[in-house]
Structure formats: structure tokens, C-alpha cells
Nucleic acid binder design. Structure first.
Lengths: 226, 226
DNA sequence: GAGAAAATAGCACGAACGTTCGATAATAAC
DNA sequence: GTTATTATCGAACGTTCGTGCTATTTTCTC
């Protein structure tokens, strides 16, 4: 009873890596089995259908995202520092050695975003929850005074996601090493725009916006996780 | 000699629609042939290999993007209006009835961004040229005085692309009708950020001879039907 | 250690795929 | 109108895929 769970765990580890390169659709049972040194039918018995394997692989990737990106970011101080930590980890996520072909979730989204079914449901649900969690973090930043009170949390979450998406795109397709830097500047511009001082708005400053609004974690030491 | 080109044209029209739903990889010859009321082998003879069909389909999608999005935007006045027209058309592109499953190019990018070969090359090359073309449009906007002189054109192109990407994502996966509005607000914020300071520097360049609206269309300069 | 239960292997199936080939029908050239 | 060329078809091949069935080996329980 316990040996099965172990191999199932190993299988999903390889499955995430393989799905990263070939997509959830291209994740085929034969090559996955031979990578693990086991038979096709032996592997198949763990899931009962390919779709179940795909769902389990997707859930595993989502779980790893939460453990690698989201939860550690929650350890950062409330408000902007937390958002900054989230952003940094999110960018690094696509370079995870366990994801040789980029983010599995984004890849699966491109494949299943117009094919109704449990996979699409799982993707949409997770995306919805993530976006809401980011929006909550933005609300906290507003409460902390890092952003102005008229800040729209969902709008912020949308724009943050947009930056991550484009960075992932440029790194994967164009292999552009400048992508990360560009993403960073876009993030700073985003943060600067919503900063409480309205004078920031619509102005053009050559240098990076000063980290006035609690960018350093030591400024707000003491206030911690909710 | 001419009948063949006509059917080839018809085939690629359907191929783009099918690839929009199932991806370039999922574009299979059998179903495509039966959609067109012709035999598998008859269709196959036009391309000689599946990869050639995929490449031709991709080139056709790129050509349609240029005709539908980019070239018409060039007809708008230089500078910010042109960028705005580009942005609007770009957003509408994903809702094109000929693309029932979203942008073929973005879909293909997700599939082939880490698989070396002619398809990836075509994608990366086109993306590079598009990004450069947008950057040139931004340079013009700077010259027109619509943006401040320290505006980084490539950074702007990156951020503009990010907005479009996220809008496409939210519309496809989340079926979120608010996506377009959010993208619009992100665009306005982008434009506002790079706007010149209130201290009017005026429109510096009166009349540098414009390249004209219907200038060049070498965006996706790929050889077509060989 | 014996027996029950679970995990894995081996094999075969039907379907779908890209591709080939020879035959036939449609079109273009003269 | 005849002929040469091109376009299309139908059938088949070799693979690969997901899946089901039956043994056999491994693991857990008492």
C-alpha cells in the first residue's frame, strides 16, 4: 500500500518535467514509463486513464507552484515587500530545473483554454484563486499605505500577471536574457504608478522610482503574516 | 496550374481555423481534408509533409495578422494615435471569427517555444520583427512629442505585448468579459506613464517625411507558396 | 513464513496518425 | 480535339497511441 504511493510520486515528478517540454497533450504514457524504467501498463494502472494522469500531473505542478512561489512569498512582510517577493519568485519559477520546457500550467492553458472539460476547469479555477490571492495581497499593500487608496486590486493583479506572462514568453521563445530586466522595470513602473504620491502619475523619471513606499522589508519589520 | 493554388488557398483558410482550436500540432490531415470535402491524400499532395502544412498554415496566420492588425494601424496618424489603433486592432484580433480558438501564433508559440526547428524559427523571427516594428512606432511617438525623450521603445513594446498577452489569456481561459476593459486601462496607464512632463516641450518634429501609411509590409517577410 | 493484497509486466486490440503508391479524373496547352 | 500535365482519389502500410486482460512478482499483514 505504501510502495504504490511512492512510485506514483516518482511518476508525477517525471510527468511534470515531460509535460513541461511536450505539453499535457504530448505527455504520452510509453515514453514516460520507459524514462522511469517501468512498463506502460504498470504505469497506466496507477491512473486508469490518460486524462487522470494529466489531471494528476497538473495538480502536482500547481502544488509545486504554490510551494515554490506563493507560500514562501507569504513569509515576506505584508504589503509591497510581499508583492515584490511574489514577483521575484514567480519570475524564477519558469527557470526551475524541474521545468525544462517552461511553466506546465501556462503550457496547458494554451492547449486547453478552449476545450471544455475537467482540465480546463482545473486551470481556470486555479487561475481564479491565484488572481484573487494576488488581489488580496494588493489590498493589504493599500492598507499598509504602500499604494494609493484608489488602487484597483484586480487591475493590479492583471497587470502583474501580464508582466510575468510576457517575461515567460520572451525567455522561452526569444531566449532573450534581457527579458528579466525588462520585466523588472515594468514591475517598478507598475508599483510607482500606484504609489500613494499622486505626483508620480504621468511623470517621467529617468531613474528608478525611489523605494519610498516600504520597499525594504526592514522598514516594516514586525508586521507579519496575517 | 491555377486550380491547385486555389484549393491550396482554401485549405490554408480552413487550416488556420482548425489550428486555432487544436494547435499546430493537433492540426491533423484527415479531419482537415474531410472538412473540405476532399481526400486525405489529395490534400497531402499539396504540401508533401505535415511540417510543410504547419509552416504554410503559420505563414498564412501571420500574413492575416499583418493585414488585419498591423497594416491598417499604419494608416492612423503617426505617434500615439497609431499605437492606439494598433492596440485596439490587436485586441480585436483574438476575437476574429476566423480564429475560433484564439490566436494561432500564440498557440503555436506555446507548443514550439522549446522545440528547435523551422517552426520555432518562423515564430521567433516574426515576433522579433513585430517587436521591432512596434518599437519604431514608439520612436515616432517620441519624435512627435507624445512620449518623453527618455522613453525606451523596446521596453514599451514589451509592456504593450504583455497587456495583449494577458488580455488574450483572460478572454480565452477565464472567458472574462472584463478582460478587454482591464487591458484598456493598462494601456492608458502605460501611455500616461511615458507621457512627457506637463512642461510642454512641444511637438519638436514638424515634418519628418513619413514613410506613409501603407509603407512596407515586411513584418512577416517569409517566402510564401514556393 | 503463509496467505492476502497490491503492484507490475507482457501481450494484444482497435483506432488514429502521417505517408506512399498506383490509378483516375479534371484541367491546361497545343 | 487531342494530348500532356496536374489534381485528386482510394487503398494500404508502418507507427504510435490509449486501453483492457491475464499472469506474475512484489509487498504488506498476521
Amino acid at each position: 500500500m505504501r510502495k504504490g504511493e511512492q512510485t506514483r510520486h516518482d511518476i508525477l515528478g517525471e510527468a511534470v518535467a515531460l509535460a513541461s517540454e511536450l505539453g499535457l497533450e504530448g505527455l504520452s504514457i510509453g515514453p514516460l514509463a520507459s524514462r522511469l524504467g517501468m512498463s506502460k501498463s504498470g504505469l497506466f494502472a496507477h491512473f486508469g486513464s490518460k486524462e487522470e494522469l494529466q489531471l494528476a500531473t497538473l495538480r502536482r505542478a500547481q502544488q509545486r507552484f504554490e510551494e515554490t512561489v506563493f507560500r514562501p512569498a507569504l513569509a515576506a512582510p505584508r504589503g509591497l515587500p510581499r508583492l515584490r517577493a511574489l514577483f521575484e519568485r514567480w519570475l524564477a519559477w519558469a527557470d526551475d530545473p524541474g521545468l525544462p520546457g517552461g511553466c506546465v500550467i501556462l503550457g496547458a492553458t494554451a492547449e486547453y483554454d478552449d476545450r471544455p472539460g475537467p482540465i480546463r476547469d482545473a486551470l481556470a479555477g486555479a487561475q481564479h484563486r491565484l488572481r484573487e490571492a494576488v488581489a488580496r495581497a494588493v489590498e493589504i499593500a493599500v492598507a499598509e499605505g504602500h499604494f494609493g487608496p484608489e488602487t484597483d486590486p484586480e487591475q493590479f493583479a492583471f497587470e502583474l500577471f501580464a508582466i510575468v506572462l510576457a517575461a515567460h514568453h520572451d525567455r522561452r521563445l526569444l531566449a532573450d536574457p534581457a527579458a528579466r530586466n525588462r520585466a523588472g522595470r515594468a514591475f517598478e513602473r507598475l508599483v510607482a504608478y500606484y504609489a500613494p504620491r499622486a505626483s508620480m502619475r504621468g511623470t517621467v523619471t529617468g531613474d528608478r522610482p525611489s523605494a519610498g513606499a516600504g520597499a525594504r522589508s526592514d522598514l516594516f519589520a514586525g508586521k507579519d503574516a496575517p
